[in-house]
């Protein structure tokens, strides 16, 4: 068996083909330059852009309802209030988008790059996810306003039971809007955290990992509660009269 220094010589003598690659033509390389990035920074940015676009669509639907359709005052008012919420949340998201760091891979070493991405996710992007979660309830409210308008011609007077049902729907919608993307990011963020903790045990101490585990448990508990609430609501709605 060779020792590692001998393997090093083998490594140095190896070509791209030995690494399992056929050489790429110039055109193939050019095509690669026009592809889509899957970097963490690009993912953060795309998530924000998609949500802002969705909010813009909901806002446009509300404006159409309030300005173009001949809606009664109750619906107008509700549409403007919802639109106000969209403007506030949307402008916050635009601010996050504009101030997002570039995560430049040519300016940082591996440790700084990992720390920058994780810190951004922990301190800023989580807030973005909580804001973006608001899109679901706003979409529900808009849908309900359209329904009320076409079904009853105005906002039907709501009794306390209606309010409980709608509030639960909005709550479940919000929780799903927050939790689903958080779970999507969890896998990658955990990988990056592992790399960083490998680089710097003191920065990412076991205490911090324990705190993260507790946080995860809290989120799972919240999701389970939301699910139970949703099921109870469903059971209530389909109960025999």
């Amino acid at each position: 068996m060779k020792n590692i220094d001998e393997y090093k010589e083998v490594w140095k003598a190896a070509s791209a083909e030995d690494a399992g690659f056929a050489p790429l033509s110039r055109d193939e390389m050019r095509a690669y330059l026009k592809g889509r990035s899957h970097s963490a920074g690009r993912l953060f940015r795309n998530g924000l852009v998609i949500d802002i676009a969705l909010k813009t669509g909901v806002g446009a639907a509300l404006l159409y309802l309030a300005l173009v359709m001949n809606t009664p005052q109750g619906i107008d008012l509700a549409a403007y209030v919802t639109l106000g919420c969209i403007l506030v949340l949307g402008s916050l998201q635009v601010r996050y988008l504009v101030t997002m760091p570039p995560f430049a891979p040519d300016r940082n070493n591996v440790r700084d790059m990992l720390a920058a991405i994780i810190e951004y996710y922990e301190t800023r992007y989580r807030t973005v996810l909580f804001i973006a979660g608001g899109t679901n309830p706003l979409l529900l409210v808009t849908g309900m306003l359209y329904y009320f308008f076409f079904r009853y011609g105005g906002v039907r007077p709501l009794d306390s039971e209606d309010l409980v049902v709608f509030t639960l729907f909005l709550l479940v919608g919000y929780l799903l809007g927050v939790l689903v993307p958080m779970l999507q990011y969890r896998f990658q963020m955990n990988q990056l955290r592992e790399c960083l903790s490998d680089l710097d045990e003191s920065t990412f101490s076991s205490q911090k990992l324990k705190e993260q585990k507790m946080q995860r448990i809290r989120w799972i508990a919240a999701a389970v509660l939301a699910l139970i609430a949703g099921l109870l609501l469903f059971a209530y709605l389909v109960r025999p009269s």
Binding site: S39, P105, V110, M113, L114, Q188, L192
Partner: peptide, 15 residues
């Protein structure tokens, strides 16, 4: 420079 960009990208890209 290439090592820097390539390794940063390889380690932080979504897997």
């Amino acid at each position: 420079w290439m090592y820097r960009v390539a390794l940063n990208t390889a380690i932080t890209t979504v897997k």
